[in-house]
Amino acid sequence: MSTTSAASRIPYRLVRKGMIMSPLPGEANEAEGVLNPASGRTPNGRLHLLPRLVAKGNVSRVGLAEVTFTDGVPSGVERRGVVLAPDEGWERGKRNAGVEDPRVTWIPSLGKHVMSYVAYGPLGPKPALAVSEDLTEWTRLGPIHFAYQPDLDTDLNLFPNKDVVHFPEPVPGPDGEPAYAMLHRPMWDLGWFRPGEGVHLPAGITDERPGIWISYVPVAEVETDIRALARPRAHRLVALSAHPWEELKIGAGPAPIRVPEGWLLIHHGVSGHIEDPFAQNQKVSYAAGAMILDPADPAKVLARSEEPLMAPETEEERTGTVPNVVFPTAIEEIDGQRYVFYGMADAQIGVALLERTA
């Protein structure tokens, strides 16, 4: 992990354009909110969101909704149904179930959309993958299985893990060979599973706060078998919390996008107080920031925003299932401009224009 922190070197800002999706009255699948969408384009080029739909009891599904526009700006959606539900045994427990917080990356070299999502099963939140060519029909690749890495002195599969997202093209792996890379956020406290067990940190890590990691799969392996995407290795720490607005933890947002400075990663940072990492916390604030990752080594941070690009300010962002949440999860180019879609207080979905400032 190598970081150069300079807000002036993040020449981007987010400008709110409004709320574009809220729960439909009477729709059981949306009784507790619509939030944290993925995005992509169907074969006919139409832009869609894949929102997390939350039913009573915090049971989540992934929906599909076509984006509508007013004067070229995203302004609403037309629902197209549910495309992923917690139908597999490992996606549900006796008192919980869910497929949550999808991220979707279109990877042209594979000709597929790759969805990462959180399966909320018997052992809590575990990351999983699915692939599609049309955003409608999805093939599960199964839970992600992180390869054992002796120098970490631990097994990453022991830990809950969220905020998984793929780069849209191969990047140099640690050995210099082309690889498909994914960002993710392990959580080291095992007390949720075995009371009193506490935090188990990998070798060389002294900060127990959840941060952003990167793992790789060689291109040649994926070309032979797409299921190799679910077996990443060469795990490396990318970034930990560095500023007050992200003092508790950070996590990746939408798929990184290539900009002149490198890979632009929009991320979220959390401040406040967390009593239970798996409860719907009411004493936190989620804000959006940005990093620039090195194209030659995406585990290296070249620049980072010292202040958030967006923090909870509007009524929709400050009032909801979890108050004070701005949670960016998707980014799309529309007529030459980039828009970021984000969850608002775990209840609704907003959109903001990503503008270059220099």
Rank of each mutant, 00 (worst) to 15 (best):
residue 208 E to Q: 13
residue 217 V to W: 01
residue 149 Q to T: 15
residue 232 P to S: 15
residue 168 P to Q: 05
residue 204 G to D: 10
residue 217 V to D: 06
residue 222 V to G: 09
residue 192 W to G: 02
residue 227 R to N: 14
residue 259 V to T: 11
residue 207 D to Y: 07
residue 139 T to W: 02
residue 211 G to I: 00
residue 141 L to S: 05
residue 244 P to C: 12
residue 155 D to Q: 09
residue 228 A to T: 07
residue 186 P to A: 13
residue 241 S to C: 15
residue 142 G to Y: 05
residue 128 A to R: 00
residue 208 E to F: 11
residue 254 P to R: 02
residue 138 W to D: 08
residue 200 H to Y: 04
residue 229 L to V: 13
residue 128 A to W: 00
residue 144 I to N: 07
residue 147 A to W: 03
residue 253 G to K: 01
residue 202 P to K: 05
residue 147 A to I: 01
residue 167 F to Q: 05
residue 118 V to D: 10
residue 120 Y to I: 06
residue 252 A to M: 01
residue 136 T to R: 06
residue 158 L to F: 14
residue 230 A to H: 09
residue 142 G to E: 09
residue 194 R to Y: 12
residue 135 L to N: 11
residue 154 T to V: 12
residue 223 E to W: 07
residue 186 P to E: 07
residue 162 K to F: 14
residue 196 G to M: 01
residue 153 D to E: 09
residue 244 P to Y: 07
residue 158 L to N: 11
residue 242 A to E: 05
residue 144 I to L: 01
residue 239 A to I: 04
residue 214 I to P: 00
residue 202 P to R: 04
residue 145 H to I: 09
residue 190 L to C: 05
residue 177 E to A: 15
residue 226 I to W: 09
residue 167 F to K: 01
residue 180 Y to T: 02
residue 177 E to V: 12
residue 129 L to Y: 10
residue 140 R to E: 14
residue 237 L to S: 13
residue 166 H to P: 00
residue 233 R to D: 10
residue 210 P to H: 11
residue 134 D to Y: 10
residue 203 A to N: 08
residue 120 Y to S: 08
residue 230 A to D: 07
residue 250 I to H: 03
residue 189 D to F: 03
residue 196 G to A: 13
residue 164 V to Q: 02
residue 257 I to T: 05
residue 161 N to D: 07
